[in-house]
């Protein structure tokens, strides 16, 4: 017998593209705001070289974990996003790191001179 495509298989989950995109935008906005804020903090703390980037990584990972717990834990993530690692941790990282660096440099320069 042909297997029904709707049988409870992970790969045949029915997803609605627009909703997933909307969810990604929500997360992107959070990432934008927080990366600017964390950049400012790094600048105020006068972190230099590796410490700054470590600060970025740690805050970013913590933020993502917090986000995952606000939407209801790791199991609920796949109700909102396609992929846990790619869609929450990886997707915005280059964008975040550049805006973090910008604010970090700016505040660092403002405080230093």
């Amino acid at each position: 017998m042909v297997q029904s495509p709707a049988s409870s298989n992970e790969d045949t989950r029915v997803t609605f593209g627009a909703s997933i995109k909307e969810n990604q935008q929500v997360l992107q906005e959070i990432h934008d705001i927080t990366s600017l804020a964390f950049g400012t903090i790094a600048g105020i703390l006068k972190l230099e070289s590796t410490y700054g980037f470590l600060f970025f990584l740690i805050t970013n990972i913590l933020l993502n974990l917090c986000f995952i717990f606000t939407i209801g834990g790791f199991k609920k993530v796949k109700n909102y996003y396609n992929n846990l690692i790619a869609d929450i941790f990886i997707i915005d990282i280059s964008r975040c790191i550049s805006s973090f660096t910008m604010m970090w440099c700016l505040v660092f320069a403002l405080i230093d001179t």
């Binding site: 992107q28 934008d32 990366s35 600017l36 964008r95 975040c96 550049s98 973090f100 910008m102």
Partner: peptide, 19 residues
């Protein structure tokens, strides 16, 4: 170099302003 840092870093600012 400040120009270059801005060039990459302002993307987030734009998307917040021009949501």
């Amino acid at each position: 170099s400040w120009y270059f840092v801005n060039l990459f870093g302002l993307k987030a600012v734009y998307s917040l302003i021009l949501k």
